[in-house]
Simulated assay, not measured.
Amino acid sequence: MRSMSVEQRRARIGVRHRLAESARVETAEAAARSMVVLHATDPATVFLSVAARTRGLEPAHVEKALYDDRTLLRMLAMRRTMFVAPAELVPALQASCAEPLAHKQRKTYGRFIENAGVVDGDVAAWLAEVEEETHTALLARGAATGAQLSKDVPRLRTQIDAAPGKSYSKPTSITTWILVILGCQGSIVRGRPNGSWSSSQYTWSPIESWLPGGISEITAETARTELLRQWLRTFGPAPISDIKWWTGWSLTEVRKALTHLDTVEVELDGGTGLLLADDLDPVPTPEPWVSLLPALDPTPMGWQSRDWYLGEHGPALFDRNGNIGPSIFWNGRIVGGWAQRGTGEIVWRLLEDVGSDAEKLIEAEAARLTTWYGEVRPVPRFRTPLERELTT
C-alpha cells in the first residue's frame, strides 16, 4: 500500500482548493468547481469563500453568476445543508441528495400536520394540493417571497405546532415547509435576496424561469458516483468515514457508489484513505501561503477527521454543533482565527507561532478582505468562541 504524508495532503489543500496565491482562479464558477460545492447556510460564506480563491473579483461578480448568468445555483443537498453548486452539477445533487430529502421532509411535515388534526382526510393529498397551488401562484408572479405567496395561497397560512407541550413550542405557518419541499424536489429555486449580498431574505422563482427545461434527470446511482468522483478529486485521500459524513448517505450507498470508481487505498498518518487510482502523483508543494477563510468554508468543513490540519485548535474555532468560525490557514493547517468588527476592521489572533513572514501575509490578506467587505457587516450565523472574543 502506498502512503501519503500529511505534508502532501496539506499541499493538495493549497493547490486543489485554490488557496495558495499561485493557484487562485479568475471566476466565481471556477472557485465553486474547485470545491465541488460552496457552503451556503450563511449567505456571506459563499462570497467570502470565492474571495479566498480568486483574484480580481468583487461581490458583484458572484451576484452576477448567481442571479444573472445563473451558472451557480443555491440548493439544499448533503446533510440537509444549503450549498451553492455549479449548474452542471445540479442534476447529480438533485438525484443523489435533494430528491430523497424532499421525500423525507414531506413525510415529516405530513406527520406534524396529521398530529395537529387540521386536515380532515388524506394528508398526503392535501399537501400535494398546497404544493401545486403554491407553484402555480409563483408561476403567475414570476418571483415572490414566502409572505407574498401566503397571500395568494390561503392554506399556506395554516398554523401548526410541531412540538406541543414543549418549552420551545410555538405555532408556525406551513409556508416555509412547502417552500422547502418544492425547493428540494426541484420545482422552485432561491433567487436574489432582498438587501446586501449577506442577506438571507430570498425571493423564490419557478424552476421554469430559472433553468430552461428544468433540472435534467439522471439515476441516483449515476448521481452518487459522479458526486463521489468529484469529492475524491478535491478532498482525497480520505477515509470512507469522511465520505459517509460529508455526503450524509448510508454506508451501503457509499460503498455501492465506490464500486463504480477506480480507487486505491493509501496509508495515511494513523489510518487508511481512499484516492482515485489516476490521482497518485504528488502535487508540487506551492509557495508559502496564507488564507483567511470564512465561517463554514468548505475546506475546513470538508472532512470529519480533522486532526491533520486542525491540531488542538477545535475548541476555539468550532461551536458545540460542529460549525467552524473564521479560520486562518498557513500552508495547509489552521493556526488561528479572525473576525470583522462593527467598524469594518479585520482582527485576528494566532493560536501558535508561525513567524513574521506568515504574519505579513496575514496582514495582506486582512487588507484584501477589508476591501472585499466594503460597507457590508455580516455577523456569522454560528458564533464561535474565538470569533466572539475578537469582536467583544
Rank of each mutant, 00 (worst) to 15 (best):
I240T: 13
W330R: 03
I218L: 08
V118S: 11
P193F: 02
D262M: 07
V130G: 06
V36T: 11
A116M: 05
L228S: 05
A95Q: 08
V254P: 01
H17C: 08
R53I: 00
T299P: 00
W204E: 11
W249A: 03
D122F: 13
G273H: 01
T384G: 07
I188Q: 06
A220S: 15
W197E: 02
Q230E: 15
P154F: 10
G195W: 12
T252V: 15
Q94W: 12
E365R: 13
R383I: 14
L293Q: 07
T81H: 05
R383D: 12
D269H: 04
L227Y: 13
G146D: 04
V376P: 03
S250F: 11
H260V: 01
A23Q: 04
D42T: 07
A147T: 15
L73N: 13
V46P: 01
R2Q: 12
Y67L: 03
L361A: 15
F382T: 11
E217G: 09
S22K: 03
L350H: 08
V118C: 11
A77F: 03
T145S: 15
L275R: 01
E26A: 14
V6R: 12
S327W: 04
E208T: 13
R16N: 13
R320A: 06
A92F: 07
I334E: 00
V335L: 00
T172S: 08
R233H: 10
A163W: 13
G186D: 05
P193T: 03
A257C: 08
R388I: 12
C97V: 09
T41Q: 15
E226T: 04
A31G: 04
V376D: 04
R381I: 09
S199N: 07
G213H: 09
M301A: 08
L156Q: 01
T145P: 08
A60S: 14
Q185K: 14
P326G: 05
W330S: 04
P286Q: 11
E26Y: 10
W303T: 00
E265V: 01
R141C: 06
W126R: 11
R255A: 01
A364D: 11
W177Y: 15
R368P: 00
D68C: 06
A137Y: 02
S241V: 06
S3D: 05
P237V: 00
Q8N: 08
S356K: 13
M35P: 03
W204G: 11
G146P: 01
T263S: 06
Y373W: 12
R80Y: 08
W249C: 05
E63A: 09
S198N: 09
A116D: 15
L149S: 02
L182A: 05
